[in-house]
């Protein structure tokens, strides 16, 4: 046991040697498989190791505020603006976007597949009182979903038992929806990578409101002097390079592109 302890101490010792930074990202970034495409290339080309903390947007913002990470990559515009206004990040830089999709039972009891607008999609679900699983965890996806209900003039507080806020990550929520055969709002990447689809099917997407902008926010060293500014700058430069643009646009699952690179170079 003492040997295990020494071994372990040695391992921490060596881990600290290489250049690395901590990045809080949303679940979708990782679940899409994009991180597995980008990070090894980054490591090879620049020697920078990015340690990912895969969390919801709410927690990513918290980790950033506390200075526990060097940068965050999230998708929740309003929160990002507040974050910058409070000075926790000097700026936000748009990187890419993906989109949200409505998933539901293949029988589509609410008939959302042929709805003309998001407002119609949501109204049909609400009128039908079809089972709907909400992330309920204050993540970017959850915030998006709430904003959509609000825009459709529907109050989630008044919903009955058919509206289930599960308070879990995308994967766990998808598992729940799959088990209940319920409707759910998911990001396309998580959905395409999801392996437990059962009877669920993609029913509605490509509405303009469903686009989802990712932004990179380095933590301000004025707030947290210990952050690795060099590393986060290096990562930002690489992430907005043509190399990264190519990798992001070329990343496909089942022959579907997931992300569109739109960083200003």
């Amino acid at each position: 046991m003492i040997r295990a302890l020494t071994l372990f101490l040695c391992l921490i010792g060596t881990a600290a040697l290489s250049e690395s930074m901590k990045l809080a990202v949303t679940t979708s970034f990782h679940n899409s498989g994009l991180s597995d495409v980008l990070l090894p290339v980054l490591l090879e080309e620049t020697g920078l190791e990015v340690q990912l903390l895969i969390v919801g947007t709410g927690q990513a913002l918290r980790l950033g505020r506390a200075g526990d990470v060097d940068a965050i990559l999230v998708h929740s515009r309003a929160d990002e603006d507040v974050f910058v206004a409070e000075g926790f990040a000097p700026y936000r830089r748009e990187i890419m976007y993906n989109d949200f999709v409505f998933i539901g039972p293949s029988s589509d009891p609410a008939g959302i597949a042929n709805a003309a607008s998001i407002e119609q999609v949501l109204n049909r679900i609400a009128i039908e009182k079809a089972l709907f699983v909400s992330r309920g965890d204050d993540s970017g996806t959850h915030k998006k979903e709430r904003a959509l209900w609000q825009a459709a003039a529907l109050d989630t507080e008044t919903f009955g038992a058919w509206y289930k806020a599960v308070g879990s990550g995308m994967g766990a929520s998808l598992n729940t929806a799959s088990a209940l055969n319920a409707y759910i709002l998911a990001d396309r990447a998580s959905w395409l990578n999801f392996r437990n689809k059962s009877d669920l099917k993609l029913l509605s997407s490509r509405h303009p409101e469903l686009f989802n902008q990712y932004a990179y926010l380095p933590i301000n060293p004025d707030k947290h002097p210990h952050v690795n500014v060099e590393a986060s700058q290096l990562f930002e430069n690489w992430l907005t390079s043509s190399r990264s643009e190519h990798l992001i646009n070329a990343h496909r699952i089942n022959d579907e592109a997931l992300f569109v690179f739109n960083a200003s170079k």
Binding site: E49, G171, F194
Partner: peptide, 24 residues
């Protein structure tokens, strides 16, 4: 620990992660 790949990922957190991906 944060479940960081190659740094703090252990069996249980890996299980949670894979479950989240529906990769039962």
């Amino acid at each position: 620990g944060g479940n960081i790949d190659n740094a703090t990922r252990v069996l249980t957190t890996a299980i949670a992660l894979e479950t989240g991906k529906g990769n039962f």
